[in-house]
């Protein structure tokens, strides 16, 4: 049951990373957010069987990690945690799409395998980019940037509250789970039944807490609008950062660099 606690500390570490002191950390969050979105759009817009053209895109998350002084292995582990999700999304591709695309010696590589690998690569790229964004900026600041960019307020407030109370909720869940495990002993602890009631309890407690929070907000003058003071400055550095990466993405999106290089090398040797 300590697992829940450990994961909780792990989420908190992202916030610690966001307090770093590199030029990338100080960049206006809107610039980082929009660049990351452009990156994701560029990666996702590739065709179903594209693989090689996506490889150079790793330069973006890797450059951010290097420049932002982020721990690579830690972020890689985070990507791995979400990986099963992507693994299952594409798992049937190789079975359904059996048409051979090309051969490696006597091995026939089907379209399904290529599109599966393509899904996995897209997943690795986009998740890594999103994680570096949060590690460089902090979840709350990303939310504020969303709001400044015109995302509807209720949506942003939902995200802020989700992040704030995630910790409180996991804490409560961990306490319930611990209380159960301490009284299970050797038996199976009545199977799944206690978990059903635990989820119910959590829901009721959450509703109670939501009500108390609402009262606390009303006591301090809440009238449907959450004010946050956070001056943001969009200057020349932000424009430079965005233009540079936009050009890199455009170049990588429309020219298949690995293929061009491959062609160049084969031409040199033939």
């Amino acid at each position: 049951m300590l697992n829940i606690d450990r994961n909780l500390f792990d989420i908190g570490r992202m916030d610690t990373l966001a307090m770093g002191d590199t030029p990338l950390h100080h960049l206006d969050p809107r610039a980082k957010l929009m660049t990351t979105l452009a990156f994701i759009v560029a990666v996702v817009s590739f065709g179903k069987y594209e693989l090689s053209a996506m490889i150079p895109f790793f330069i973006f998350p890797l450059a951010q990690i290097a420049k932002g002084d982020l721990p690579f292995m830690y972020l890689l582990r985070k990507v791995m945690i979400v990986a099963p999700f992507a693994l299952f999304i594409g798992i049937f591709n190789p079975l359904i799409d059996r048409e051979t695309l090309f051969r490696l010696g006597s091995i026939h590589i089907s379209g399904g395998w290529i599109s599966y690998l393509s899904i996995l690569m897209r997943f690795a790229l986009t998740v890594m980019a999103a994680l570096t964004l949060i590690a460089l900026t902090g979840f709350n600041t990303v939310c504020l940037a969303l709001e400044k960019l015109g995302v509807p307020r209720p949506f942003v407030v939902q995200l802020l509250f989700l992040y704030r109370y995630l910790f409180v909720l996991t804490d409560e869940a961990a306490r319930l789970a611990r209380a159960r495990s301490l009284r299970v002993f050797e038996s199976n602890g009545m199977g799944f039944k206690p978990f059903a009631s635990m989820v119910g309890h959590l829901l009721l407690r959450t509703l109670d807490r939501a009500q108390r929070i609402h009262i606390a907000m009303c006591c301090r003058g809440f009238e449907g609008h959450i004010p946050i003071l956070r001056p943001m400055r969009f200057g020349i550095r932000e424009i430079r950062y965005m233009t540079f990466w936009a050009m890199v993405f455009a170049l990588l999106r429309f020219y298949n660099l690995p293929m061009q290089m491959g062609l160049l090398i084969t031409r040199l040797f033939t």
Binding site: Y163, H225, I226, R230
Partner: peptide
């Protein structure tokens, strides 16, 4: 309930 201590303490005065 706010993201940082500063935001939380500022919540009341800003609403006022």
């Amino acid at each position: 309930f706010m993201p940082t201590v500063f935001d939380d303490v500022a919540f009341g005065p800003l609403n006022l």
